[in-house]
Design a protein around this nucleic acid. Structure first.
Lengths: 221, 221
DNA sequence: AATCCAACTTTGATGATTCAAAGTCTCGGC
DNA sequence: GCCGAGACTTTGAATCATCAAAGTTGGATT
């Protein structure tokens, strides 16, 4: 069985590879070190172990990419993480802003049997409380690319699909604004010079978001 | 924070101390090694670390006893273990015979916040699916000593209170007999020479249990 | 082409946990 | 009082994951 450490490295490689589409999925050692929270030297060491386990391909001074096995493991960890988050919100009543940290630990402690019970109890959901897609048991993920509030059409009724930041303070702010996944919104205006976006959640006070915040709120519709 | 290893040692010291009332709660190194599943030498090493952490008192070639802090930690781990077991049975629908192994891992991954949500969801239960008492958040446990089927009164209507073995095969057997916690039973007879106890679960076929099995089923009433 | 810098790798060391095997103690029997 | 057996401790070594700090490298800058 992969250790908790290995699961975390593989998960972070996957997530980092998702964010930066530019490079061919190759994740730099520095980026990975930051994501995992260790010094770069540690990553060099660990990556060699991951190569030996057949989970990643590694090009010295280039970066790492997941092998098929590595990606399968990453998606399995992510499935556990996201189903656990949803369980914590829907069944145990935790706030969506706090479940990420809890799931970060629980994702390494949930067996396949328990995982599939959670999935069944929740009705095989496709997204977690943040709108992040839940990989299927077979390792398929919804790879839909969505526009953020920073780049979507102005004036058209949209729906918040996903919030791509796990910081509890940010999520609570999003909550207060009424920009949670599922909420109807319209972008009323955008000011490039001011790096600002004026957003109106349906039936709520309009909010001005800076570009960085707007980019974290993905919409559909 | 105590490591998973430390939590396990402390838990096992507590459990071993419960079983053998004889010694003044002092658990031998060999017993602890067997309980934790390591060689004796490892226990000697680890116990020294536990002493340094103020969790146990250790008398070389005598044994270990938990300090107040050690007992508090042990009860906290046990609370997590038992509440998780009950959650797995009542909410996720797992079989009581399989939840022990799952809880063995999850008990180290559940935060206090999640734990108290589980407790609330289940209505602050006092026993887990095996009838083992759940320590309170403040570290109090029901210390009631119960008689087993091997020693209780013959011919009197009783109720199964607890099954003190976590082996799935044994628990499934108990299940098939109808001797699960809560079930009404009567001991119809006992044959000391044959080391056998004849037990009749209410409205079921009578079963003959050997002494070792009978000792694992505790009753009340 | 010479140099510099940031990113990366290497090296040496540490802490936690474990085992195997060798050494030591203690208690019961003689 | 001596001796052996079993229980316990010690010793030496291994594994995993990590860090600090020193050494490389490759491409960008001049």
């Amino acid at each position: 069985m992969p250790s908790i450490t290995v699961e975390n490295y593989v998960k972070q490689i996957y997530l980092a590879g998702q964010q930066q589409q530019p490079t061919g999925g190759q994740v730099s050692m520095g980026r990975l070190a930051a994501a995992v929270g260790v010094v770069p030297g540690t990553v060099t060491t660990m990556v060699k172990a991951l190569v030996a386990d057949g989970l990643v391909d590694y090009e010295p001074r280039g970066g790492v990419t997941l092998t098929r096995d590595g990606e399968r493991l990453a998606l399995h960890v992510l499935r556990r993480h996201r189903l656990v988050e949803l369980l914590l919100v829907r069944v145990l009543g935790l706030d969506w802003s706090e479940v990420h940290a809890e799931a970060e630990v629980l994702e390494h402690a949930v067996s396949d049997k328990v995982l599939e019970r959670i999935d069944a109890l929740l009705g095989s959901p496709t997204v977690d409380p943040h709108g992040d897609p839940i990989p299927s048991a077979k390792g398929k993920v919804d790879g839909t690319r969505r526009h953020s509030l920073a780049e979507c059409t102005v004036g058209r009724p949209l729906r918040v699909a996903r919030v791509t930041d796990q910081d509890p303070a940010f999520l609570q702010f999003i909550d207060r604004c009424g920009l949670v996944p599922g909420a109807a919104v319209t972008v009323e205006g955008r000011d490039a010079s001011a790096d600002a976006v004026l957003v109106r959640p349906d039936g709520r006070r309009a909010v001005t978001l800076g570009g960085a915040a707007a980019e974290k709120v993905l919409v559909e519709g």
